[in-house]
Write a protein that binds this DNA or RNA. Structure first.
Lengths: 125, 125, 125, 125
DNA sequence: GTGGTCTAGACCACC
DNA sequence: GTGGTCTAGACCACG
């Protein structure tokens, strides 16, 4: 997989990595057993500090999404990570809330957001 | 105006204040010349440190949205702050992008988001 | 005399009053014995707090430029205020220093300042 | 770069830092990408509180002149900060106006100022 | 009373 | 190690 890091967004790098891996798994691009880039390799590729990669991998390992095997590498965990449906529900609620507030601060209505989302879908199709 | 601070969200308090004021001005609730709560008063109301309020007010003053007058108080700036339309466009793009990535990390599609937004609107009607 | 107060400049109001009186005296517009507006009158005229006028007058009285006479008003002092020549020298040095630094922060050279000053003189002639 | 703080001038410390950085950038001493002293280091060097440095850096970051990267340091922003020529013009006007008023309060004419500026240039040559 | 500045020191997030 | 945020409390400038 390819990563895209935006150092200007203010979003921590390790978090960007985490979310992109989670996303890739969620949509099936990364299947159980697949090997991820090594810590050092990814650090070089993204021109970032290896510790940052370590931190992202470790957090996903704790979560159960990855399996790090000493000496051989890091892999997508075979055991499906079931996210509790209630938790998932709360998650999308939290996300929409935060972003409605942020959009509202610039005078955007929820309708504007919906339109922007639709526009994104069309252009990326 | 009334403020609502969520200390658990991870969003800095001063930033929450900034966005709520920006929002109130954007939707016309706070008009030019109107006085904001004093630094000390708002600090007491929100049970936070006065310096935190100072910081929020100061940032908005630099931006030109507020006018602080030593000895008399802090007011909504009389000069309209023109937000460049291009900038506003970039803003909603950035917001929706972040929204989509974070949602995708939990397996939500843009359609799920639109639905969540619609649901919000209906329930709040 | 007429006063001009700029509340947006950041320069304290009482200081603007002080400097304008000092200036008027320096160039001979206000001669010894002349009565200044009463505190209340000036406060009303400039739409400011009477205490602000009191402060300006008091500071000039301490300096010896004004004489406040209980019950009758405030007057330009009859005794010439001799400013020590050394002090005057230090004053202009301090002023030029501060303003060269401030101008330099925006990339202006002393030559730019000289030119700007000359331009002022011509346009105001 | 080296900083010089004058605690007796009445000019806030954080503002002195801001102007000296702005100046150094304006005259090309600090180029894009160059790292500034760390917050703690500069605080020690100048014998001031780290928060005061933070405040100066922060203001310049909002302005776009600096980039602060958590964990690595504070740098001169790569993106050139375009100062609008009209704004620059207004700036020197405001500065010279203030200079002339303050000088006039002590009986100095614009010519005296020009002379003082010239004198400065010669002696510093 | 108002806001402005500074200090001292804490804890967190990130690299 | 770096910067980011917040608190507590001081003193000053201003109206």
């Amino acid at each position: 997989m390819t990563f895209f890091i935006d150092t200007l967004s203010g979003v921590p790098i390790y978090r960007q990595i985490i979310e992109q891996i989670r996303y890739a798994v969620a949509r099936g691009e990364l299947k159980p057993g697949v090997q991820l880039p090594t810590v050092r390799q990814l650090a070089v590729d993204l021109s970032i500090n290896p510790n940052t990669v370590v931190r992202a991998y470790r957090e996903l390992e704790i979560e159960g999404l990855l399996d790090s095997q000493q000496g051989s590498g890091t892999f997508i965990s075979s055991k499906e990570v079931e996210i509790d449906e209630g938790e998932r529900r709360r998650m999308i609620d939290q996300i929409t809330t935060e972003l409605m507030i942020r959009a509202a601060a610039y005078g955007f209505t929820p309708d504007d957001l919906v339109e922007a989302l639709r526009h994104r879908q069309e252009t990326s199709t």
